[in-house]
Amino acid sequence: MRAALLIVDVQEVLVPLVWRGEELADRVAALAREARRAGVPVIALRQVGPGGTEFDPDSPGARISARLRLEPTDVVVDKTATDAFYRTDLAALLAERDVDTVVLTGLATDYCVDATARSALSHGLDVVLVSDGHSPAADGDPGARLTAEQVVDRHNRLLSTAVHPGGTVRLVPAAQVAFGP
């Protein structure tokens, strides 16, 4: 396994809005430290949008959360869609590093994490979905009458049982993610 840690949209504007956001950001920061120790690339994805919006690339809220304590060796990729591969250089960055597996974390479970997991499979990558490493909105999905915890559980189940010829999805809790041999 040649892995990369993908951190999806753990941004200043979003951390306070998601379920257990600060706890999640701290858990992801610990994973990033472990990845770096093992020589595994850390790639933080950042949702950007038009000027004057909360995702304006120059706005403080669009910054990657300071809780992650990114290092100069980490890569930040700006994206404009839920799928982190869409019109970005993410696939090329992973190919340059000979990555065949992405360890996936971030925000939000039912949007960008889900879309990026599915797209990674379509790009022929295996996905290690950190089962406690992603969060939805703090109120879950009220329209579907799902709590935040239920949204996480549902997406873990759906993504881990998806059949896709490009790759596999494996659920692993953060405490059990192993980047080294």
Rank of each mutant, 00 (worst) to 15 (best):
R157N: 06
V10T: 10
A25P: 10
A4M: 05
R46W: 03
E34D: 13
H155V: 03
R46T: 06
S160L: 00
D114K: 13
A144D: 09
V128D: 03
G52C: 01
A91I: 11
D26H: 13
L121Y: 13
W19D: 12
G166H: 05
D100T: 05
V8G: 03
L146N: 13
D100M: 00
D9T: 04
R27W: 02
A35F: 05
V169M: 07
A117H: 02
S65T: 15
A35S: 04
T53N: 04
V18R: 04
D78N: 11
N156M: 09
D74Q: 08
V102E: 08
S135V: 09
T109Q: 04
G52N: 01
R46L: 02
V48G: 00
A81L: 03
G124F: 00
V77E: 00
A29H: 12
L45S: 07
A3D: 10
S160R: 00
G180T: 07
V18N: 04
N156E: 09
D98Y: 00
V48E: 01
R63L: 14
A92P: 02
V28N: 01
V75D: 06
L171D: 11
G167C: 12
D56V: 03
F85R: 07
L159V: 09
E12Y: 04
P41E: 02
E149M: 04
A162L: 15
T147Y: 04
S119T: 02
T101F: 09
A138V: 10
A148Q: 14
V10I: 15
D89M: 02
S59Q: 07
H164L: 10
P181L: 11
T53G: 06
V128T: 14
G180Q: 05
V18A: 06
I43D: 02
D114Q: 11
R170K: 09
V113A: 09
L93P: 01
V113M: 06
P181C: 04
L14P: 00
V77Y: 00
D114H: 08
L5M: 05
V163Q: 10
D153H: 11
G39D: 08
T168S: 14
Y111P: 01
V75F: 08
L68A: 11
V152S: 08
T109R: 02
A174G: 04
F85T: 04
F85M: 04
N156P: 07
V99T: 04
V127D: 07
V151T: 08
A91K: 12
D56K: 02
A44P: 05
R87S: 10
L93D: 05
A137W: 15
D83F: 01
R145W: 12
I43H: 06
S59C: 10
P181Y: 01
I7W: 06
V76E: 00
V15Q: 07
D110H: 14
A3W: 02
S65R: 09
A81R: 12
L121Q: 14
P60R: 10
A120I: 13
F55E: 07
K79M: 05
